[in-house]
Design a protein around this nucleic acid. Sequence first.
DNA 1: CGGACAATTGATTATGCTCAATACTGGTGG
DNA 2: CCACCAGTATTGAGCATAATCAATTGTCCG
Lengths: 214, 214
Amino acid sequence: MSIHSSREFVALVPIGHNDAVARSGMPRAISQTARYAKDQHIFDQGERAGKIFRVQSGSVRLYHLLADGRRQISAFCLPGEVFGFAQQGTHELYAEAIEDTALEAQSLQETLTEENLHAVLANFFSAQTHLLVLGRQLACERLASFLLDMNRRLGAGNRVKLAMSRNDIADYLGLTVETVSRGLSRLQKDGLIRLHDARSIEMMKPHALVGMVE
Amino acid sequence: MSIHSSREFVALVPIGHNDAVARSGMPRAISQTARYAKDQHIFDQGERAGKIFRVQSGSVRLYHLLADGRRQISAFCLPGEVFGFAQQGTHELYAEAIEDTALEAQSLQETLTEENLHAVLANFFSAQTHLLVLGRQLACERLASFLLDMNRRLGAGNRVKLAMSRNDIADYLGLTVETVSRGLSRLQKDGLIRLHDARSIEMMKPHALVGMVE
DNA sequence: CGGACAATTGATTATGCTCAATACTGGTGG
DNA sequence: CCACCAGTATTGAGCATAATCAATTGTCCG
């Protein structure tokens, strides 16, 4: 893997809450808000990359596809989170809005900021942790990991309102829809969670869920 | 996830082949070579992070553990590659030398460089791609992915000399040792690879292997 | 040469997948 | 307002891939 002019390779612009940059008087990035409808594509694999995105509202799925249609969602992006980093100037995955979504799209600049690096690192550690889930956890454990992660990121008591379908969850956790559904039913039967409706899930015993995933 | 002073969070120093920095006269990082024996630990999860490492020779495994001992190797690091990026100043995984290994350890500085960012991105995309393997590929497909990746990174014709055991490969691919062994036997029986010895594998039909993984 | 570790192979089991049927939900139009 | 319809979710039955348990074989060092 060669290390040549990485100037060409990646969007490097200040992102939200960039106090350090604001104070130092460095040039701010050009940014604008773009709106996407449910299931609208944001960028495709192979597409030229020139921007990074910060979710203002809504949520986004990032995924890879195999030739026969198998799909792996590598991440969900929730409000406040940043995505769209690319190598070789080309996106390696697909991005779609899961629901109606507003994104702050920021144009390519050559400015290195700590916030950029921090966002990339957040993406990286998130992916790395997910490897453990996909490689070594059982179906119910994967679901517990997913619910706890969503709860942490959405942060509203012990109840999460999921934007994504069972199909999306399955493709994120490396399972099938049926297994996701059965797993949730099982967690509910065991008293660990409560399904208020299919997309609104309350964690009744968060500590027990944590115990499942570590 | 708060975005405060990321200065505390990550080692940011110039790394190898840093022509831009060298030319510009910016201060070079303090760096030194450290040697590790087979299976020697480099850092542990929870340990204070203060350095990043560049592999000069040998190879390294990075992994997570679950409480009951299940292990997921998130990456193998080969000569020329960089690892050790951390968040919150604390390592999130374990690092061990797979064989006798020399590392260029570089002290923490606050210098942002394009090479650093590029190294983090390389780590990130590698993890992201591996999610597809763990989430959506069958055992033989995972093995094909692994062999092709090793061949690309080691780059010596169509023959790879693996430093790691079947057990390491299994923990990297989310399989058991037995399944790895059976998968390799199967690929050999089908004429796709040839096992010169257990650790020395030749790809007889690289194109067919590529066909398996996409 | 011997002993420990590593790798392979076999038999059986189990987790999650596939195929199939049914239930639920939300939006639309009569 | 309610009935209908399409998409979404749940549940069931049988199957397949990979895990587990177990026995051999192979290999690298001392």
